[in-house]
Amino acid sequence: MSIEVRNVSKNFGTFAALTDVSLTVATGELVALLGPSGSGKTTLLRIIAGMEDPDSGSVLLEGEDATTQRIQQRKVGFVFQHYALFRHMTVFDNIAFGLNVRPRGLRPSKEEIRDRVMRLLRLVQLDRMADRRPAQLSGGQRQRVALARALAVEPKVLLLDEPFGALDAKVRKELRRWLRRLHDEIHVTSVFVTHDQEEALEVADRVVVMNEGRIEQVGTSEDVYHHPANPFVYNFLGDVNLFHGRVENGQPYLHPGAEGEGHALVFVRPHLLDIQHEPSGEHSFKARVTHINPAGPVVKVELISEWGQPVQVNLTQERYRELRLQKDASVYVIPRELKAFIE
């Protein structure tokens, strides 16, 4: 089922949570709402679910206006940030809940419910946990129970609020890959909220970057990472060095003192900077090494530029060994790619 959000605004008192937001999600897509806390992403998700009413604008599900529909009528599955599993029920009863509360005429038979729950348990790889209580499960297992419970009612849309937010880093990574595979298997239109750029870029077909109640950019991982629409998106999607500069003939230049006409903010990601012992090309500048962290897949070098600005450069281990960098060494920094936003 497709989702269409049209010109939605929402205020909480004097706080504008969403301002004129429009968004379309195609059937079968997996979309991430990405943004810092307070950016309105959870509010947008809750409005799509029917848990909040927009002050203005409308929500269309499968082309039909659903703005006035209650959550029960929208056929959405919602996975809560802290799972909201029913503590007093077993895993089985949790998943069966949505089927058991149906009016008698629409309720599947006991055997059907049993079959469906067991199928879902196998899908989320918890078939041996049916009789456990939520308290006896790990965080990742609870997350998967919550997902199975939402899927049990065969929702047309799956909505997930910070689905991995409460998990530790390792489980998080495993689980998001698993979610991606699951989505490829069942293809239900899904929207999830996250503040973790890596998570959004890795899992989603498309990423919606939000900030202060507005959508900054919508696009594939590739789009938003390599072709950010504005400084916010560039900044939010990974480490970045920010320089002052100017744009001349469509070409950005670093220019520490630049002001006025043609002044631009120039962004460079740390891995797009190189270090050499000699100046090279028109963009290179002199800097002094202040700190080196060689642990990890890349070597993180911190420098201070000749005009006194801290700069971060990520080098490969080979390049680092080749250069034989020392602390306090004077070197040249060479940008391989500049991205400029004219102010």
Binding site: A49, M51, I71, Q72, V76, G77, F78, F80, H82, A84, L85, F86, R87, H88, F97, G98, V101, R102, R149, A150, A152, V153
Partner: peptide
Amino acid sequence: DDEEAAVSLGAGPLQTFWRITLPN
């Protein structure tokens, strides 16, 4: 959260109260 989850799964007011709130 628990009650919202129950409602999102289609439970009515009385079902939500009897099955979710009261046991809690």
